[in-house]
Amino acid sequence: MAQEKELCIQEMARRICERRKQLRLTQEELAEKSDMTTQAVSYAESGKRAMRPDSLRKLAAALCVSADYLLTGDIVDKDLLILADKLRLLTPSQIHTVEAIIDECIHLYTEQ
Rank of each mutant, 00 (worst) to 15 (best):
R19L: 03
I106M: 10
Q22K: 02
A67T: 10
A31H: 02
T72G: 01
V41R: 03
L108Q: 14
E45M: 01
T38M: 11
H107A: 14
D54L: 12
Q112T: 11
G73L: 05
C64Q: 13
L25M: 15
D79E: 09
A62C: 09
L90R: 04
E32A: 09
I106T: 06
L25F: 15
E32G: 07
E32R: 06
A60C: 08
C64D: 14
H107D: 11
A13P: 04
K86I: 01
A61D: 09
D74A: 15
H107C: 05
I75T: 15
S46A: 15
L7M: 06
K78M: 12
L59P: 02
A62W: 00
T97K: 13
E18A: 15
A50M: 04
Y43S: 06
R14V: 11
D54N: 12
V98T: 08
L63H: 02
R88C: 14
K33Q: 11
C105M: 10
K78V: 11
S34M: 00
C8R: 10
E11P: 03
I82R: 01
S66F: 05
H96R: 14
I101L: 15
D77Y: 09
T110F: 11
A67L: 00
L87K: 04
S66W: 04
T91Q: 08
E4K: 13
D103C: 12
Q27G: 15
A50P: 06
L23Y: 07
T91N: 04
D68N: 12
S93L: 09
R49W: 01
E6F: 07
R57F: 13
L80M: 14
G47T: 02
L56W: 00
P53A: 13
Y43N: 09
S46P: 00
L83G: 05
I82E: 04
L59R: 01
R88V: 04
R88F: 08
L30F: 07
S93H: 06
E32K: 08
I95Q: 14
S46L: 14
E45D: 10
M1E: 15
L23N: 07
Y69R: 01
K86N: 10
L89V: 08
R88I: 07
S34V: 03
Q22P: 01
E45L: 03
V98Q: 11
C64I: 07
L87G: 08
A67P: 05
C8L: 15
D85Q: 13
A40M: 09
E99V: 01
K33N: 11
